[in-house]
């Protein structure tokens, strides 16, 4: 067994297993026909969030765009001539619960593992190397971009950026976005140089896998059984 760090159960499972469990729950919640199955998956997701020590504030913030999206779709439906009956409200509520559960599962996963483990876990499934390489690069880039954006924004705030009128702040945000874009292009060029210097000639290579024992898959089997029961038991 590896990766036994952290106090809660979720940190005691192998990172690959966490990824596969998350994917299983998301697939189940996306396809499950019964609201009870979706609700049970939502409870599992909530438990995973608490086990991963995900701050409640983050979990609630995730609801804002989801409620906006579902409410927007509902009202668009009304504008298109759908009847505002209980059934359509029920469907929208169920859709909201599916979306939130998927969000919560990925939020718990993101809190408990780094993007590196996610990419390795996907590679372990022997998916095409181009797909995993591109996924890894995008995740890494998003991480770097977020960090740089936070640094730049902090620098802006420390120099009184939020005391300017709102239109000036919008201009600042635009300039910062442009600057981040240029910086990421320059960084991309430097990274490309570093790769080329270490012999990269366009051939795609898989990353080094983490060691995983058959016993590490026990939690995954348990999760699969639970989800199967939730799906089939009336």
């Amino acid at each position: 067994m590896v990766a036994k760090s952290g106090p809660s159960l979720i940190y005691r499972t192998h990172p690959y297993v966490r990824v596969y469990c998350a994917l299983l729950v998301v697939i189940t919640v996306a396809l499950a026909p019964k609201p009870t199955t979706v609700a049970a998956c939502a409870l599992i997701a909530l438990a995973a969030c608490f086990a991963a020590r995900l701050p409640v504030r983050k979990l609630l913030w995730g609801l804002v765009p989801l409620i906006s999206m579902v409410a927007g779709l509902y009202f668009l439906g009304l504008l298109a001539g759908n009847n505002p009956n209980v059934e359509s409200l029920h469907k929208s509520g169920l859709f909201l619960m599916r979306c939130w559960t998927a969000f919560a599962v990925f939020a718990a996963l993101r809190t408990s593992i780094g993007w590196a483990c996610f990419v390795k876990a996907v590679e372990f499934l022997r998916l095409p190397v181009l797909l995993t390489l591109v996924t890894g690069s995008i995740l890494r880039w998003v991480d770097t971009l977020r960090e740089e954006a936070t640094n730049v924004n902090n620098a802006r705030l420390l120099r009184g950026g939020n005391r300017r009128p709102i239109y000036r702040r919008s201009v600042d945000i635009g300039l910062i976005s442009a600057s981040l874009m240029i910086r990421s292009l320059v960084r991309a060029e430097d990274v490309a140089n570093a790769m080329e210097l270490r012999g990269f000639d366009g051939r795609l290579t898989r990353s080094l896998p983490m060691s995983i024992a058959p016993s590490d898959f026990c939690p995954l089997c348990l999760m699969a059984i639970i989800l199967a029961l939730l799906w089939w038991v009336p």
């Binding site: 780094g114 993007w115 590196a116 483990c117 990419v119 390795k120 890894g136 890494r140 960084r187 430097d190 990274v191 140089n193 570093a194 790769m195 990353s207 080094l208």
Partner: peptide
Amino acid sequence: QDQLFLPTVAD
């Protein structure tokens, strides 16, 4: 930062 671009140190 420009030289390290893979998921783990080993990679």
